[in-house]
Every structure is written in C-alpha cells, then in structure tokens.
Design a protein around this nucleic acid. Structure first.
Lengths: 95, 95
DNA sequence: CCTTTACTTTCCATTATGGAAACTAAAGAC
DNA sequence: GTCTTTAGTTTCCATAATGGAAAGTAAAGG
C-alpha cells in the first residue's frame, strides 16, 4: 500500500472526488467529470489545472465525434499521492 | 451506520483530526488534543470554537491539580455528523 | 498584588474557492 | 473565407478559510 501522506491539494472536496473518479479508470472525459461533481466549467477547469501543475494528472485533447474533447487521467505520481492521501485519511479516522 | 453526509466543517484537516480523536474517547483535554495536532493554542481554540458553535462538541472546564483545564467531548450530534462524514468519504474513495 | 497557567480573542496577511463573464481554438455550416 | 457552435480557459471579483503572533482574560498560588 502507498505510504500514508496527507496531501492538502488532494484533500479539497472537489479534487478528492476528481482523483477518486480517475483512480478507477484509465481516463475520463472532462464533461463526464464535470457532471459527476456538478460544478461549472470554470471551477472544474481550475481544479484540473491545479492537479496538472502538481503533476498529478495529464490532459489529452483528442477529437472525437467531430469535437475536441479533453480526457483526464491520473499520472503515476498522482495515483501514488492519491493512495497515500487515502491511507492518511484511514489512519486519521481509524481504518 | 450513520447516513453518508459530507460535512465541510468536519472535512478541514485539523477539525477532522479533532473529531477523530474525540470519537474514540469520552473526553480529552485541550492540551492533549493540541499536542496530538501540533498546533498553537490559538489555532486549536478557534477550531474548538467552530465545532462548539456547530453543536458538535461541548467544553467542560474543570479544575484539576490546582489548574483549570478544558475537556472536550463530542456531542451526539457531533458524533453523528462525524460518522456521516466518514461514511461520505468512504463512498467517495470507494470503501 | 504579582505571576503563572490555560486558554481566548484580536489583528493581520495569505490562500482558497466559487460564480460570472469574457476569451480562445477547432470543426461545421453556408 | 466567415459565422456559429462547442468545449474549455482565463480573468475579474468577492467572500470565506486558515494560521501566526500578540494582546487579553480568569483563576490559583506565592
């Protein structure tokens, strides 16, 4: 298991959800994540940018169905940080 | 189990720890909580006040060993809110 | 009365977060 | 080519959160 390490960047509600969603899939579309979190474009865009700048996720802009769409996926670092954060949460709340 | 309900007040790192500590004991001294969290008097005092105003904890100022000490304990509401928040976290991170 | 202990409150600065609106780039329509 | 739509991005703005430091308070003891 990842080493427990509380990560403030990941702890924020919206970003915790983003990481949790991405942890279970190879990648997920921006609009799908947005719908899951029920946030506006601008809010999601800003969180995505923050996670990207931390090296936790990568963006892949691809064209599908005549439209450019952005796919998000956790990087290896991002997954480790996320799992480490979850481990830290478990330590705090006791399993 | 408590109904999953994300609670922003409890989510903040320091307050999550305070609730987690109090959840396992009947009460805990202010100075002990402070040492566990490694925060200053003022910071802990402010978080304690916020939790108290939410009705999540109660303070009991008692004199022991010639000194007045403050004991903190979760109220029933506080415990429900805490357990509900932990349940929400589990739903987010997937158990 | 002065000091110490155990917090509380105030003051201050920084960061976080979100909503709304303006802005940009790419793909089709015409 | 130009206009429109889609999919985000960035900017502007206001509010809330959080912490450190320092001043303030209340009670007990010397």
């Amino acid at each position: 298991m990842a080493k427990a390490c509380f990560d403030p960047l990941i702890h924020a509600h919206n970003r915790l959800q983003i990481c949790a969603l991405l942890e279970s899939v190879a990648e997920m579309e921006f609009s799908v994540v947005k719908a899951q979190l029920s946030v506006s474009d601008s809010v999601l865009s800003k969180h995505v940018k923050a996670l990207e700048q931390a090296g936790y996720i990568t963006l892949s802009k691809r064209t599908s169905l005549a439209r450019q769409r952005t796919w998000l996926s956790l990087t290896r670092d991002g997954e480790l940080a996320y799992l480490g954060h979850v481990a830290a949460l478990r330590e705090i709340v006791g399993l």
